[in-house]
């Protein structure tokens, strides 16, 4: 049984593409056949985050227009078996595809894949409508800022209105030091406000920039906290019974060694 999951947010720049790349990569690491679909026609980026930008031959619009078969447009990931990308067209716009065509593509992908992740463009217009058309479930990405949470609320309303009632929240780029100072909304503050369940939280982590520079999703990095957080939320996504990662007590390896050293030296 396969599942089509759309990653959306309303506001741009909150981490939809990074989230799509990381969840997809970890799903394939766990042995699930996974397809990533970039629906941001005209502004594609998922290929870059995955490090696959040099392998694109055909794209989503070519498939829709019958220039190629779906399987020809799917790019195999360079690291993991069972992970494929369907890139968006870069030289067209959102109107090149309609929701019915998107639904038929996701339906065709269901035959070969366990998970189909749809990277949604920012905004609430045609691109959004295309992205959610074939989705069983939505992951709403936000950051702990007034503007991003406001847009998340709007998106949740639109998902409900479009009958995508299975949706969960991902809070990205949380800075625990600012939360402790009282200068950033914490998880509870945001959950008080939005009518949605929490899938997971991702800390703000410089390593994300480094991994995006290289085109390697951070989830493969055993040590980074953001990588750990993406593994945690993906486990929860596939129904594993694990609690949301505790960013307060979850230090990296070096911090753990440091605290160990402190304890032993004080004795």
């Amino acid at each position: 049984m396969s599942e089509v999951i759309v990653i959306t947010s309303g506001k741009g720049g909150v981490g939809k593409t990074t989230t799509t790349a990381n969840i997809g990569t970890y799903l394939s690491m766990k042995g699930f056949k996974t397809a990533l679909v970039d629906t941001d026609i005209g502004l594609r980026n998922l290929d870059v985050v995955m490090g696959l930008e040099n392998r694109i031959v055909y794209d989503l619009v070519d498939v829709v227009e019958g220039q190629c078969r779906l399987k020809q447009a799917l790019i195999k990931d360079k690291r993991f078996d069972g992970l494929y990308l369907l890139p968006a067209a870069q030289t067209r716009d959102k109107t090149a595809v309609n929701p019915e065509q998107m639904r038929s593509i996701t339906d065709e992908l269901r035959q070969d894949f366990d998970y189909i992740l749809i990277d949604c463009p920012a905004g609430i217009e045609q691109g959004f409508k295309n992205a959610i058309a074939g989705a069983d479930k939505a992951l709403v990405v936000t950051t702990p800022e007034v503007s991003a949470v406001r847009d998340a609320d709007r998106i949740i309303g639109l998902l409900e209105a479009s009958d995508v009632r299975d949706h969960m929240l991902i809070i990205n780029r949380i800075k625990m030091d600012m939360v402790k100072r009282g200068d950033m909304m914490n998880i509870d503050d945001i959950m008080d406000i939005l009518a949605i369940d929490l899938l997971g939280v991702i800390p703000d982590d410089e390593n994300i920039v480094i991994s995006t520079n290289k085109g390697e999703p951070i989830v493969v990095d055993e040590k980074s906290l953001a990588g750990q957080a993406y593994r945690n939320l993906t486990q929860r996504l596939i129904g594993e019974d694990v609690p949301v990662i505790n960013l307060d007590t979850n230090y990296g390896l070096i911090d753990r060694l440091k605290s160990l050293f402190k304890i032993s030296s004080s004795r």
């Binding site: 949470v149 939360v179 100072r181 009282g182 200068d183 950033m184 909304m185 406000i193």
Partner: peptide
């Protein structure tokens, strides 16, 4: 403490 998160939360609500 500046506690600007409470300002953010109030505005958001």
């Amino acid at each position: 403490k500046s506690n600007s998160k409470n300002v953010a939360k109030e505005r958001l609500q």
